[in-house]
């Protein structure tokens, strides 16, 4: 286990380093932020002074080195636009995004797992076929369009739910949360469901495939033959084996939920990191873009690491196979 952990940690560190170089060089290639930030009337001396104060006159390597030095001090540079710490700006917006993403994941499991199990247990029934047809539609619908339709139906026509912002928030542990107030929950439902829809379809398909495999397997037949209640066989024996691929995929998908939150946040005016990055890209606010991407990369690497470790605990063959090879 130790060597497995060490190897994975080393890999993760390398990915982080490689991505930081890629992101930095990539962002460096984007048009000149000075043109966006400085008014055309500014004198040459003014321009020169601002360029120097932002450190844009130094070479790419010098800028990268000072960036990495800053990162180890927890400093990703100051936002060109907001004039405050870029990482602070992102961490300030992060709870809103995480709240949305976690709600979406919870929704996708609450809705997807039972439906997928039903479809797996009765694959040829009308119900099973309808669930699968529904999941194809769910896969096909572009997130942003579903968001528009949700707003149109529930906010514009029915007027049941609000369509913009986070609503009333409560401060717990120094962070503002929406899901603890009734108004906040009402604001959360539409965006969370919008973000969850694609994952619901995914969970349905994975669960159904896993259930069909499990029900056809020897251990399930043996358990039934032994006289265990079918209910217990499905809920304990089969479900456990279904959960392994589900944990992996959902863990990996959490990152993509954060990424797709960019779309949902834009539609529902949810004040999270996604909205921030879209705004930052349009004004070429380099420190914020770099900091956002690095936070996302770190998150992905961590998620991959956690999934791998969880996986190796759930299925010892992975760990042993990794250690001997």
């Amino acid at each position: 286990m130790t060597s497995f952990l060490a190897r994975r940690l080393l890999q993760s560190a390398f990915v982080l380093f490689a991505m930081s170089v890629l992101v930095f060089v990539g962002i460096f290639a984007i048009g000149n932020p000075v043109d966006v930030l400085i008014s055309p009337e500014a004198t040459q001396a003014d321009r020169q002074r601002i360029v120097e104060s932002l450190g844009l006159d130094r070479s790419l390597i010098e800028q990268y080195v000072s960036f990495v030095r800053g990162v180890f001090d927890g400093d990703f540079g100051k936002s060109f636009v907001f004039k405050i710490s870029a990482i602070g700006l992102i961490l300030d917006r992060m709870p809103a995004t995480l709240e949305l993403a976690v709600s979406a994941m919870v929704l996708s499991i609450l809705i997807g797992l039972p439906l997928g199990m039903l479809a797996g247990m009765h694959p040829d029934s009308f119900l099973g076929r309808s669930i699968m047809a529904g999941s194809i539609v769910g896969f096909s619908m572009p997130t942003f369009w579903v968001g528009l339709i949700l707003i149109l139906v529930f906010a514009v026509y029915l007027g049941w739910l609000p369509s913009t912002g986070r609503g009333e928030t409560v401060t717990v542990l120094g962070i503002r949360w929406s899901f603890l107030t009734l108004d906040g929950l009402a604001h959360l439902i539409l965006p969370a469901f919008n973000l969850a829809l694609f994952k619901i379809s995914l969970v349905i398909r994975l669960t159904r495939a896993g259930m069909r495999d499990a029900l056809a397997s020897d251990y399930v037949r043996y358990a039934i033959a032994k006289g265990l209640y079918p209910r217990r066989v499905v809920m304990v024996h089969a479900l456990k084996n279904i959960l392994i691929p589900l944990v992996t995929v959902l863990g990996l998908e959490f990152g993509s939920v954060i990424a797709f939150a960019i779309v949902t946040e834009t539609i529902f005016a949810w004040p999270g990191t996604g909205k921030l990055i879209i705004e930052s890209i349009s004004v070429l606010d380099r420190p914020v873009i770099v900091a956002y991407l690095m936070v996302i990369v770190l998150m992905f690497v961590t998620i991959n690491l956690i999934v791998d470790i969880t996986y190796s605990i759930l299925d010892p063959r992975i760990r042993i196979g990794g250690a001997t090879s």
Binding site: V15, A18, G26, G255, A259, V263, I277
Partner: peptide, 18 residues
């Protein structure tokens, strides 16, 4: 593997920003 571990929308967004 590295590329597929990032969601396509994020990669495409960064590329188009560039």
């Amino acid at each position: 593997d590295l590329q597929l571990s990032f969601p396509s929308i994020l990669v495409a967004m960064v590329l188009l920003a560039l």
